[in-house]
Amino acid sequence: MSVTPDGEGDAADRAANIYTQSYADLTRFLRRLCGDPALAEDLAQEAGMRLVAAMRQEAVAHPRAFLFHVAANLARDQLRRRVVAQEHADMQDEHEAAAGADQIAAVQQEVALVSNAIAALPARARAVLQLARIEGYSQKEIAARLGITPKTVENHLTRALAQLTARLRMRGRQ
């Protein structure tokens, strides 16, 4: 397309690295979500652009999770539109206005909402979340650390995720 000489920032550089390293996983995740390989690539690229923009603007503490979160949100916009088109051809899409809105702000707002919602969960569920959100802890390790069965770990996480999701969906409807 064209060439830019020197002068791109370090932040854009780091964002580029994370995007490159995550690209295969990201497109796999998006293909699973959307069931549409071409759309998955488009959304991955768009999410990559948002990551670069976000990291230029300020420090992003968990860039990989941010990237996947933006990607999931872009997919949600697309899927919501398809659901509406399928089921309510006569209805206006109430989310239309929010769809093109600022994805970076949306992610930050959702992270804040989730952080708040965690505080309202029972202590045991919170403990499971704490361990599960740090990637690398397996179901068995969490079970061993908390002295519960692996199945209970899964149940806690399922319930907690369902509650956090409900919290996010509530905001979407406001």
Partner: peptide, 11 residues
């Protein structure tokens, strides 16, 4: 749910 999961990872 995936969005909530990734929000959780960033919290």
């Amino acid at each position: 749910v995936a969005a909530a999961g990734y929000a959780l990872q960033q919290s």
